[in-house]
Design a protein around this nucleic acid. Structure first.
Lengths: 220, 220
DNA sequence: GTTTGTGAAACCTTTCACAGCG
DNA sequence: CGCTGTGAAAGGTTTCACAAAC
């Protein structure tokens, strides 16, 4: 047996990045399974997501001994554990930068709040939007960004501005002290190492789909 | 030297998936660089994206000999080559399923059309939306999905419906004959192997960001 | 019986380092 | 010179297969 106690975390640096991305998928699936079952085996969980049973067990074993031989994993317990690992076992305060089509849609998206994220302010250059509530969120001018981010202790930024303005807006978020940025603009941001960022480029995702459609073997 | 001639493609099955995802990023960066330069080295291109020079060269070499020693890569030529590889050197006809917040935002997103994707129809259950134009796209009832997809020869579907309706809507797209689905609903779809699909879960992305913020080493 | 956790093997991806080309 | 393309090495990830646990 490992010298790690149950639920004790390993150094996150030795956890493969691919494992972390699957953790979110496990969490999502477990939240559905919880409605009907109280335990699940690695085989069943893997099957729902298209992974092997061995992969599920290996992934979870990075973080502790969550399973019971002959039984499987207790769903509630595993959900709590994964949320602790991901850091979503508490609320995160988030800012939206850019209240165009996409920004507005994201402000109204219920999936964020259900996972512990609260959008507490939005920013836009368009003065006709400033001062209004959009999807229940107050819109401020970009000039107020630093002040509001500090005042409301915002930790994460969602960036939904046009590509040409994205780097500048990101710099301001960094300046204001956020710890992470989720970037929807189709550009690669250049940021200091002490700020995490992830890019989500919708056109890029569609290109990947395209490739896989165009290169499918005929007999598939 | 390889026995592959310039621009000749290898069997796509032997190309790592990670390489394909970087191809989209190379393309995006090259489209910016083209405005100021006519050639670029692997080092420069890699630096913009945070990849090593060796990785850029290795990735591109899967598909042919695009570079010139001592000079680098001709940007226009490389853009054309990557578009051919991804399959975006032609127009793709796309349907939007779900015209809620996110669906509407995606209908108005200019980034799709600039990369060769044309949204030619939208579908929604809400009868107050059916028959209207949203962002210039005609909205049909879900009942018309199969007919319209066939008539307009739609190849790809964007799925932006609530999670509980996603599998059913995806089944209908498959039934209607689409080749690929980009799924924004927070569920894992179960689809036949002859239909490609990619999931984009916005809450999941935010969780990944969270993890990387929460687990950053103090001295970073 | 079922299912976990994990060494060991297999497989996959990135980096190194340099011959060879322009 | 500078830069590519690529063998070989290093590093990372997944699968196999089975002893141990229930």
């Amino acid at each position: 047996m490992s010298n790690r106690r149950k639920n004790e975390l390993v150094d996150p640096k030795e956890v493969p990045k691919a494992v972390v991305s699957r953790l979110s998928l496990y969490l999502r699936e477990l939240q559905h399974l919880r409605l009907n079952e109280s335990t699940v085996s690695s085989g069943t969980l893997g099957q729902k997501l298209g992974f092997s049973d061995a992969q599920v067990r290996r992934d979870l074993a990075y973080f502790g001994h969550f399973g019971q031989p002959g039984v499987g994993y207790r769903i509630d317990e595993l959900i709590d554990a994964i949320r602790r690992i991901l850091g979503t076992d508490r609320k995160w305060r988030v800012a939206m930068v850019g209240v165009g089509n996409l920004g507005r849609a994201l402000l109204g998206y219920r999936g964020f709040s259900s996972q512990g994220f609260t959008i507490v302010a939005a920013f836009d250059v368009d003065s006709s939007k400033v001062g209004r509530l959009v999807e229940g969120v107050q819109v401020y001018s970009l000039g107020e960004l630093e002040l509001v981010v500090r005042e409301k202790q915002i930790e994460l930024g969602l960036l939904a501005v046009p590509g040409k303005n994205a780097q500048q807006a990101a710099d301001r978020l960094v300046q204001a002290g956020v710890s992470g940025i989720l970037n929807f603009a189709p550009v690669t941001l250049n940021l200091p190492d002490n700020v995490s960022h992830i890019g989500v480029d919708l056109a890029t995702e569609l290109e990947q789909l395209c490739f896989s459609v165009a290169n499918r073997t005929p007999e598939d």
